[in-house]
Design a protein around this nucleic acid. Structure first.
Length: 567
RNA sequence: UGGGGCGUCGUUCAACUGGCAGGACCCAGGACUUUGGAUCCUGUUAUGAAGGUUCGAGUCCUUCCGCCCCAGCCA
């Protein structure tokens, strides 16, 4: 029954599947309807993607539907711009709500009528306490609250006052409508929670039609009920709210949606709260919500992460109730696994070092056929031009090679990928002693990369012909934070003290092979031996900008790190 | 200290509801290699603790310990 995936062979079903199946078996519900309820006050991140995959995934698994519903009950924080961005992100991830696009604000009138109903049945009252007083009356974790002096207000008076709240007769914050439940409840959410507040703010959908707005607690469950949501799946912090969620539905006698909570996703080396992400955007720590370093879906898209990889990642992460922090490496693994299969290989030199092949004719140039993807023969080959002057990676040459270094070094022969063997004969340096150029010779008999005499080389390096190179800007990204847990900060400092000052490195003057001419934003490549790269929207004709999506796994880097660690 | 949750390899998810604790990521070796990539083998490490029930406990019972969430007119 369960879907088999490449790496995550799952056996048992998770607790939400168990619950749904039990509900179907018992007849509590005869179908499955879910919803994804974002608040349009920021961009979606990978944590939301987990919720999306669960909400849409459970509906799909049990032949049901999933609605998109914007939870827009707080006009002071919400914007249409976010609504549009959220829709784009969900579609990009690969999910579709068809015509079922709803808004909690679309239910404002019904919610108001239900509030009137609760007032009439003596379950809600208008309270004149201010915010500070409400807090005082609420009590503490260990002490019960005190009842509001307005709790016993007669129904007619409540009706009149609530009506006048809506009519705009009172200033912001002057009164609230509260549910009459139990000020002594050990669950603070049940201590007469606020249902409506007076707030003169322009709403992105209802404009200035309302000056009172329902709170999350009063709006969410009823919205679920209106939509016939059977399973309202949300994150753990709402567990305490479930009794209230059920109380409203019961008192109103409406469709009994069931709320089930799961643990939210956390990733190492990043932060996941919208508040913090917004903070980084506003403080210009990053360029915007779609900065490729951000854990937002738009950031990951720009970074070059395929949606399929994100979905596979989410599948492997699983669904449970224990607080979790997933290794960023798992995400990276899924991205590499996906890209390795699908993306064309290409040669690019990020930090160029000039190489002159002394025995290659000055006016000559030729083309080699290079394999586009060794994982996929159907991807074919492409032509790569070769000539006397080339660029190789600075890292691929060492005048004095460290132990286990296989690449080019004076007197040593290596292979230029898909071309010839070359041997370094001499080194040209500037006044400071820095290597500026290499003089090499090539062996014409090794054309294509194999020596007829059977001799082997220890390394194959990538290269780009100077005369044919496309100049590019390349942006290298690293974790936004230095520590796997950004909150692990010294006394008196906060998460921002762990920001990685080198999370972005911009390289200019990079050399790309000419087949990249005309590459469009969003196109992805593997730069051989370097990593996966994606064309950035900042690119202009003849001046491409590439984002590094992920590096390749790098044995040499590990060897170096180990040698360094040893001393 | 009130209430609500959660504790299985370093990380994450499993274990047919009492029957050999398994997979993936990470890590370490090795094979292969025209990417120090990919791929393929091999390997290390876990049931928070103590009692109890039982032929047998990750699963049941008791006690303890630890971690997370809640005192917004945010969601």
């Amino acid at each position: 029954m369960k879907e088999e995936t490449t790496g995550a062979r799952t056996t048992g079903k998770h607790f939400i599947e168990d619950a749904i199946e039990a509900d179907l078996a018992s007849g509590r519900f005869d179908h499955v309807q879910t919803r994804f309820p974002p608040e349009p006050n920021g961009r979606l991140h990978i944590g939301h993607a987990k919720a999306i995959s669960i909400d849409f995934g459970m509906a799909a698994e049990y032949g049901g539907k999933c609605n998109l519903r914007f939870d827009d009950t707080n006009p002071t924080k919400e914007e249409t711009e976010y609504v549009d961005a959220i829709k784009e992100d969900i579609h990009w991830l690969g999910y579709d709500w068809e015509e079922r696009e709803y808004y909690a604000s679309g239910y404002f009138e019904q919610l108001y009528q239900w509030a009137v109903q609760l007032i009439k049945s003596g379950k809600a009252y208008v309270c004149d306490l201010g915010a500070d007083q409400v807090r005082e009356y609420r009590g503490t974790l260990t002490q019960p609250g005190r009842e509001s002096p307005h709790r016993g207000r007669p129904v007619v008076e409540n009706l009149d006052l609530f009506n006048r709240m809506r009519a705009g007769e009172f200033p912001d914050g002057a009164r609230t409508l509260r549910a009459k439940i139990d000020m002594a409840s050990p669950n603070l959410n049940m201590r007469d929670p606020v249902m409506y507040r007076i707030m003169r703010a322009h709403h992105h959908r209802t404009g200035d039609a309302w000056c009172i707005y329902p709170t999350y607690d009063y709006a969410h469950g009823q919205s679920d009920s209106i939509e016939g949501v059977t399973h309202s799946l949300c994150s753990l912090e709402f567990e305490d709210h479930r009794p209230l969620y059920e109380w409203f539905i019961r008192e109103l006698g409406i469709f009994p949606s069931r709320q089930i909570e799961f643990a939210r996703l956390n990733l190492t080396y990043t932060v996941m709260s919208k508040r913090r992400l917004l903070d980084m955007v506003e403080q210009d720590v990053v360029r915007d919500w779609d900065d490729p370093r951000m854990p937002t879906l738009s950031g990951m898209r720009r970074r070059g992460f395929p949606p399929e990889a994100i979905r596979e990642f989410l599948k492997r992460v699983g669904v449970a109730k224990a607080d979790t922090v997933i290794d960023y490496e798992l995400l990276e693994h899924c991205v590499r696994e996906d890209l390795n299969k699908r993306v064309p290989r290409v040669m690019a030199v990020l930090r160029p070092l000039k190489v002159v092949i002394e025995n290659y004719p000055e006016d000559k140039s030729e083309e080699f056929d290079a394999v586009n993807n060794p994982e996929d023969p159907s991807a074919g080959t492409r032509k790569v031009p070769f000539s006397r002057v080339l660029y190789i990676e600075q890292d691929d040459f060492r005048e004095v090679p460290p132990p286990k270094y296989f690449r080019l070094t004076p007197g040593r022969e290596v292979r230029l990928r898909a071309a010839y063997f070359i041997k370094c004969t001499s080194v040209v340096k500037d006044e400071t002693g820095a290597v500026t150029e290499l003089r090499c010779t090539y062996d014409p008999a090794t054309r294509g990369g194999d020596a007829p005499d059977g001799r082997k080389v220890k390394a194959t390096i990538h290269w780009v012909s100077e005369a044919h190179a496309v100049e590019a800007e390349v942006r290298l990204y690293d974790h936004l934070f230095l520590k796997s847990n950004p909150d692990d900060a010294p006394e008196g400092l906060d998460w921002k003290s762990n920001l990685n000052p080198k999370s972005l490195e911009t390289l200019t003057g990079c050399k790309l092979e000419p087949s990249l001419t005309g590459a469009k934003p969003g196109q992805r490549f593997q730069f051989e031996r370097l990593g996966y790269f994606c064309v950035d929207p900042d690119s202009v004709a003849g001046k491409p900008v590439l984002n590094r999506t992920a590096t390749l796994r790098d044995e040499w880097a590990k060897v170096q790190a180990r040698m360094k660690a040893v001393g």
